[in-house]
């Protein structure tokens, strides 16, 4: 089924991608379009996903709202329709309020709730899916955690399982990116792009996005997007400090120590390849090499100290 709005207007747009993949940049561009209103992160779809959550036990009985209401005579379609009406209603009202005909929504952590979001939205919206190199995402998620001083639920779940923060963030990326890739591969109403391509050739990629959305593209769009904040709210804090598309964080993972790269490569490489990225080269280190690395690190620290004293 292809996306269509029940009111005959163009369907809503949902941006999905692992957090720290350029979703806020996309949001700002969409919001700069004269026909599209994309508010800062609303967390509406994550909340809807929690509403739809059901616990499933060995006997096969699902315990949650949808099954609970079915006993009260409300079929699943009706429950989903009412929930969709609530969620879409806020976004439609927002678009009306600022005088635009079409809404878009982006909340980065939606990528961890895609099963429920697909159940609610497929056939009713167009999805724009964005991917970014997993090791860069892991690093950037680490920055996010340092900035916020804690873990949101979606990331904390990984930290509880994996005590090394970068490993936990890499595994979170694998799950989020896989869910986004599955959506993009399965749906006719989904378009995929990569952050690296978007930042290298923004106009080419954005033309593709707006063609998919059946909206005209104008050459001033990107400039307008980057000139304004497009409404202050939740989202990437860094993007508001940038007046141009910035590639400085592409390939930042190369600054990680080799042993960390090797560990993360083991986790991320299959997903990187699935998404069309080159796998990260891995050279396993034995205990002797690890010890040597430690020794050389200490010697290098001494060199830094000598250099400081010499200046």
């Amino acid at each position: 089924m292809s996306a269509a709005s029940s009111s005959g207007t163009a369907p809503g747009i949902v941006v999905v991608g692992s957090p720290r993949s350029g979703t806020t940049l996309l949001r700002r561009v969409l919001d700069a379009h004269p026909n599209i209103a994309c508010p800062p992160e609303t967390y509406l779809f994550g909340a809807a996903a929690r509403f739809l959550h059901a616990d499933e036990f060995a006997a096969g009985l699902r315990i949650g709202v949808v099954d609970g209401l079915s006993f009260a005579g409300f079929p699943e379609d009706e429950v989903l329709g009412r929930l969709r009406g609530l969620v879409f209603g806020f976004l439609e009202d927002y678009a009306k309020k600022i005088g635009k005909p079409r809404w878009a929504e982006k909340t980065a952590f939606d990528a961890f709730h895609l099963d429920a979001i697909r159940r609610l939205c497929e056939g009713h919206v167009k999805f724009v899916c964005i991917h970014r190199h997993g090791l860069d995402v892991a690093l950037s998620l680490g920055d996010l955690v340092a900035k916020t001083g804690g873990y949101v639920d979606e990331l904390h779940a990984y930290m509880r399982r994996y005590p090394e923060p970068l490993e936990a963030m890499a595994r979170a990326w694998v799950d989020a990116a896989t869910a986004v890739a599955e959506l993009a591969e399965a749906s006719d109403d989904a378009l995929s792009l990569r952050y690296e391509d978007l930042t290298a050739a923004p106009e080419v990629e954005l033309r593709r996005v707006f063609e998919f959305l059946d909206e005209p593209y104008d050459e001033e769009l990107l400039g307008r997007a980057l000139a304004g904040t497009g409404g202050v709210g939740f989202g990437d804090w860094k993007t508001y400090a940038r007046a141009k598309v910035d590639r400085s964080s592409v390939g930042r993972w190369k600054t990680l120590p080799t042993p960390v790269q090797v560990k993360l490569a083991g986790i991320c490489n299959p997903t990187l390849e699935r998404l069309g990225y080159e796998p990260v080269e891995t050279e396993d280190e034995d205990a002797e090499e690890a010890r040597r690395r430690y020794e050389l690190g200490l010697l290098l620290n001494r060199m830094k100290q000598d250099k400081g004293e010499g200046e």
């Binding site: 600054t255 120590p257 080799t258 690395r293 050389l296 690190g297 010697l299 290098l300 001494r302 060199m303």
Partner: peptide, 27 residues
């Protein structure tokens, strides 16, 4: 950076077949 420099030292040891002496780790 420091991480890359340690990598470089290990690479040099492999390429030359000789260990880097402590006093050789210098600017």
């Amino acid at each position: 950076d420091s991480f890359a420099m340690v990598d470089l030292l290990m690479w040099l040891e492999k390429q030359t077949g000789a260990r880097v002496n402590p006093d050789d780790v210098s600017i």
